[in-house]
Design a binder for these strands. Sequence first.
DNA 1: GATGAATGAGTTTTCATTCAT
DNA 2: CATGAATGAAAACTCATTCAT
Lengths: 204, 204, 204, 204
Amino acid sequence: MTGSAQNIRDCGPNRFERRREKTRVELLEAAERVIARKGYHNTRIADIASEADVGLGTFYLHFKTKNEIFIELIDYGAGDLREELVKAKAGIHDPAEKLRLTINTILDAAARAPESFRIVFGHGPAFLDLMVRVHQTFIDDLRIDLEPAIGSQADAVAHLTIGMLSQAITWLLEREDLSLAELKETTVNFALGGLERAARPDVS
Amino acid sequence: MTGSAQNIRDCGPNRFERRREKTRVELLEAAERVIARKGYHNTRIADIASEADVGLGTFYLHFKTKNEIFIELIDYGAGDLREELVKAKAGIHDPAEKLRLTINTILDAAARAPESFRIVFGHGPAFLDLMVRVHQTFIDDLRIDLEPAIGSQADAVAHLTIGMLSQAITWLLEREDLSLAELKETTVNFALGGLERAARPDVS
Amino acid sequence: MTGSAQNIRDCGPNRFERRREKTRVELLEAAERVIARKGYHNTRIADIASEADVGLGTFYLHFKTKNEIFIELIDYGAGDLREELVKAKAGIHDPAEKLRLTINTILDAAARAPESFRIVFGHGPAFLDLMVRVHQTFIDDLRIDLEPAIGSQADAVAHLTIGMLSQAITWLLEREDLSLAELKETTVNFALGGLERAARPDVS
Amino acid sequence: MTGSAQNIRDCGPNRFERRREKTRVELLEAAERVIARKGYHNTRIADIASEADVGLGTFYLHFKTKNEIFIELIDYGAGDLREELVKAKAGIHDPAEKLRLTINTILDAAARAPESFRIVFGHGPAFLDLMVRVHQTFIDDLRIDLEPAIGSQADAVAHLTIGMLSQAITWLLEREDLSLAELKETTVNFALGGLERAARPDVS
DNA sequence: GATGAATGAGTTTTCATTCAT
DNA sequence: CATGAATGAAAACTCATTCAT
């Protein structure tokens, strides 16, 4: 009897937890798809629930508000990307190389998971406080990478580079015929050129 | 007597029109202020009317929807800026110089009329079809400027540059302590560096 | 001087009065056309003013409310028709003949001035209190005509006849190819048949 | 166990549907009462929701506009009445008898469910396209009934009869002291008299 | 836990009426 | 007198959130 109870205790909650987690993930994925398609403000919670194929009330068992699932979505996506960036830059010390890796990694990720990126970069930074903060994270990381090379100009160059990337992603997502390889090359080149000039304070 | 008749002919028929136009402009200016302050989606039509100090119904006398006044706002602002750019570049043939002028002119304008720019560049290109089209206009103009220097890469570089500028403006608008002169210099430098590299197809 | 003043007193006010009356009539005619076309509730005062080719404010110089012009319209039209009926029936004593004249006169008038009739008879009696009263007037007149012949049944027959007529008018107005002469004949016949039966209380 | 599963199969899936349908019917009944009482144009959607004792938003869960519930109301009511007429006339071939049955059935129904009838017949045919169509249905049915007896005059007589009936209903609904039996008798008599005359083309 | 019907505060929208010119 | 821009009360409509089952 104890054993059986044990079993219930061991499996039951896990089974429910697993099911719960599954629904939660389905909601997140559904939200990503719908928001990417219709934009945040035009997405109704009913749309998300319906896309996830769950009842409307179920949404509220997992997220308190529309904003909450959105934040989760962004945080989750941005966190993943950031981790990937950290890994890619591990052991690298050359700022130019770090810049190149940042651009390549982000553009690769955008091509791989366009829907996430349409949300994070598709609205521009001024959309929501959260977005500003997320963008700021990437800008800060890049600034730190660039400071050894260009000092006080690192902040500006980081801002400009992220803006450039944001536009590159938007372009990539809306033009399916665009060559990812070429876009990466041009973007990296452009940024490296900018970086070079920033490092030569003599040119006006 | 002829003069008096003249006056009547000149002013009489326009009395209502002038009043109407005045209110219309007040509404547009009010909308600009409120949308810049609260963002498009958080702006109620009542807010605009109230900011313009007119009755709620008056709004609908001039614009059918919030979207309509917004479109007018963007079109008007973007048109002005574009004209200014055309003037600034008149007689210039060097692509690099045109690029420099584009950046300087836009950043100057942003510093001069932050509210308009917060609207045109503050939401990112994916916000509304119109925004995409407006951004596209500037990108196209720039592409044409750059084609003589870098050929097929002009499109990409134009996209990247406008993205960069968009970010620069956002940054400028949110950080009052930022030096406009320095931002302009860094941005121009960055872009010129990118342009140089794009012109040298040998570097990877 | 007195003479001149006299002249002004005589002509001036008359000229204005005449002009005023003209505008008033234009508004009434415009209202008739528009209400006949769009129905009372779907007619905006702006529509009436615009159809009369006067300013919106001008409407209110002549009528206090939308209801007022409507009442005027109905009263005026119904009064005219009633007068015509009285004249037509002058000197006639036979109830059947009076019934025949009532039907013929009303259908003739409807064919002559369809727009007025679309308003008076085109909405059914329950539309507005006023309409009920107007219909009641015609019913009462007819009841008095019929009482000598059928006594207590006169009220019911008057109601039924007016209902019949109302439908005949609606039909006439919506089917341009309908022969007025035939409709009149059928309607008169139908009513006279009804009247005959009402006069023979033996039939079940 | 099978039974229980059966129950689940029977009730489970329908629980929401049944609740939904119940509210929908409550709204329809409430709309009937309120529109009959205040007329279509003076009825606010809030009135209907309040009469049905549900929230305002609930209305929109079931009907898109006020017009939509109104159309449903008319269609439903008219359909019922028409079915009743078809049943009543089953097996009858004499046109006069069919006419008598039509009148009696409709007047009985009006006395039984005054609210529905105030809506279907209380606004007159010109109110809405739908009303015209509904009236036309009854006219067409009657015309087919009468054609064997009076041929080409059937259309006109059908129109006149329905107009007569419409007025009889209006009268019945507004005068509570009216004897239904007497009204029916008079109306039938009137119509039969008309029919007789129509069948004798010799009388002018 | 899951469900979707119900809710109602918050917005948009209409239009009869006023009023400065 | 004539005008039409302005007004705002009143009505329509949306949708995030709750809750009984």
